[in-house]
Amino acid sequence: MQTDPNLMLTAWLISASLQMATPLILAALGGMFSERAGVVNIALEGIMLMGAFSAVAATYFTDEPWIGVLTAIIAGGLLAAIHAIICVKFKGNHIVSGTGILLFAAGFTTLMLEVIWGRKGVSEGVTGLPDVSIDALAGNDFINAAFNQHSPLTFLAIIMVVVTWYVLYRTPFGLRIRASGEDPSTLDTAGVSVNWTRALGVIISGLLAGLAGAYLSIGFGSAFGKGMTSGKGFIALAALIFGNWTPGGVLGAGLFFGFLDGLQFAIQLAPAFAFLEQFTAFVQMIPYVLVVIALAGIRKSRAPKAIGVPYEKEKKN
């Protein structure tokens, strides 16, 4: 039991999967609030990038990573609020607005990287969030290696899945969010403001995506790099769709896509798999291809009905 190399490799793979899944789950949960409320949010990637940058910048100036996390959440919420204003108040096109946010975030974070640190590619290193060690898990070698010693945000991500499920399905607010994405006019008839419900959904998505960004920069690493989200926001979106817009589905899809990420590292590190190294690109493609196949083949994949349609109060059918 002590040091069975295969068992330890498995434990290591589980640990890596959890780490890689954390930002995906957080951002996808965020995307769920936005999309269940009826606003398409392809800007998750940009919001994550903003979160990652803000976390490092705030930690750099205060030397306190938790303030960095808080700043990332706020920055993500603010950026999402812009998306909300354009999509909800001014009835702009959700995709175009999302594209604008993506471009803005990519440009702004790189600009600020140069303004603050005078560097082009990577910021100066900052104190990362310390990993959490839970004594109860430390007894068994396998469990310790697989499930212990993670960033607190990893544990938070799992907790957030439950919280999201509870909020969406067991609270009046969750019901409003879902109604505003499925049938906004009914919500309107019930005397609830569709605009505010949608705006809140988008802003919550920003808070969570900002947190996901903070995990990337100071939870998993300890610096900000230009374009460091490298498509993770889009994989989160894939996880959201693959998970059928439900918290449980997002958890499963997030863990699976995280496992694929972890698998790439395992292939690169384990000598037994060395011959597979040149094919890791195909492992990388799996999430993207799976989503296309899922959308094409499985008809039960169903988006919220009124997603992407600006709600006009006058519309009464």
Partner: peptide
């Protein structure tokens, strides 16, 4: 001024064009 400023301007143009009602407003 870092060249990234161009990306910022570009993103902002798109954000504003996304919602012509902002200008009308």
């Amino acid at each position: 001024v870092p060249i990234e400023m161009v990306g910022v301007i570009q993103g902002l143009v798109v954000l504003f064009v996304a919602a012509p009602r902002i200008i009308s407003w």
